[in-house]
Computed example of a mutant assay.
Amino acid sequence: MTTLENDDLRVTIRPKGAELTSIFHKSSGIEHLWQADPTVWGWHAPNLFPVVGGCLNNQLLIDGKTYPIERHGFTRQSTFETTESTQTHAIFSLRSSEATREHFPYEFEFQIIYEIEGPKLTVTYRVVNEDEQTIYFSVGAHPAFAVPFKAGEAYEEYFIEFEEAEPLETHMLSSGGYFTGETKAVPTVDGNRLPLTKHLFDADALVFKNLASRRVTIQSEKHDHSLSVEYSAFPYLGIWAKPGASFVCIEPWLGCADSEGEPKPIQEKEAIQQLAVGKVFDAAFTITIR
């Protein structure tokens, strides 16, 4: 386990999946990360690579061949190497191997970089193309934040505030987790507040593909303590909780699940990223507690 610490935060990350396991805010004494109750949802904050969401038939189609791939990819189950660690900064690395090539035939290094400064945690995804051809991938985050923040509070006292007042339209998912092509309006309060309820996610995640907002904030009606996620590099945003659970996931994505129909080659998948030979890809998001 790796620990980062300053006057405001104590953050822990485990080697499996290079996954955050704690974001503790010192002055308030609040643990902001869901503690992975296995009877409800046994993850804290999985990192998603080389796919986001589900692929049709649980397969990737690359250069005419199919490769088995699980929902959200294999890195959340992979053990990362810690290549750098200071009091406030750590780098975790996963390199291509015989095991990864069974699912994703490219040569790569996938780094996850964590850094704290004051009450802000920055998470950077870095992909290095070590292949002799262009590689294609998706990447995303899935952190689950504990709600309510304090004992004695109710989940329904909380809301998500979007940076911009804008109409919210979610892209509907089938029971298998694939996009159906349908959309649905999501009601808000004052144009930018999404009230949290235990039934908000009964039909699966809310998936937004065209937001103007580049920041969302989890807030309470009863006090000013808040947690913001800023995701300027990520065009898609998922918001999800297991119905009835005491958390909400704020999920910046560069990629998304497949749509129902016929599988497409990886380079034709929606929101797929491509990286030329020898190039490096970076995308970061931040979590700030106030």
Rank of each mutant, 00 (worst) to 15 (best):
R290C: 10
L194G: 02
A36G: 08
E132H: 11
K16N: 09
T83E: 08
F159D: 06
F281W: 15
Q133P: 00
V52D: 11
K269Q: 11
G140I: 02
T180E: 09
E230L: 04
T197L: 02
D202S: 07
M1A: 10
P243H: 01
G278K: 12
R193L: 13
H199V: 00
T288E: 15
G181C: 12
P235Q: 09
A245S: 15
Y114W: 02
V147R: 05
R10E: 14
S232W: 00
I23N: 02
E132I: 02
E156I: 08
F104Y: 15
N129M: 10
L60R: 05
C249D: 04
T286N: 11
Y106L: 11
F234C: 09
F149V: 03
L20M: 15
V128Y: 01
G42E: 06
L9T: 01
W240G: 07
T217H: 05
L227M: 12
T197Y: 04
K242G: 00
Q87R: 14
Y178W: 12
S93K: 14
N129P: 07
P252M: 05
G17Q: 09
T83K: 10
P243Q: 06
G152H: 05
H142V: 13
R290V: 11
E132G: 05
V216C: 12
F108E: 03
G140W: 01
D7S: 15
A45I: 04
A36K: 10
N57R: 14
Y136G: 01
M172S: 02
Y67H: 08
E157M: 01
W41P: 01
V186K: 08
S78V: 03
I287S: 03
K16P: 00
L33G: 05
F80Y: 14
E260V: 11
H89P: 03
K26V: 09
P187L: 10
D282W: 02
A99I: 09
I13P: 01
E268K: 14
R71A: 06
A283P: 13
K198A: 12
R10N: 05
S213R: 11
T180V: 11
S28D: 07
A45N: 10
G152I: 09
A90H: 06
V147Q: 02
R214A: 09
F110G: 07
N58Q: 14
A90G: 09
T217F: 02
V51P: 02
Y114N: 07
R126Q: 15
H72K: 11
A233D: 15
N47F: 04
V216F: 08
L227G: 03
L211C: 11
V280A: 11
G152E: 03
L56E: 03
A276Y: 00
T170E: 05
I13L: 09
Q273L: 13
M172P: 00
F74P: 05
T82E: 15
S226I: 02
R215T: 14
G191A: 09
S226Y: 07
N129C: 10
I250A: 06
G255C: 04
R10D: 00
L48W: 07
H199R: 12
V40R: 11
S22Q: 13
Q274A: 13
F24A: 08
K26T: 09
D131V: 01
E70V: 15
I113A: 08
L275S: 07
T286R: 08
V186P: 00
E221K: 13
T75A: 14
E102C: 08
H142Q: 05
L254R: 14
E132K: 12
G17F: 02
Y125T: 08
L275T: 09
H142I: 12
F201L: 00
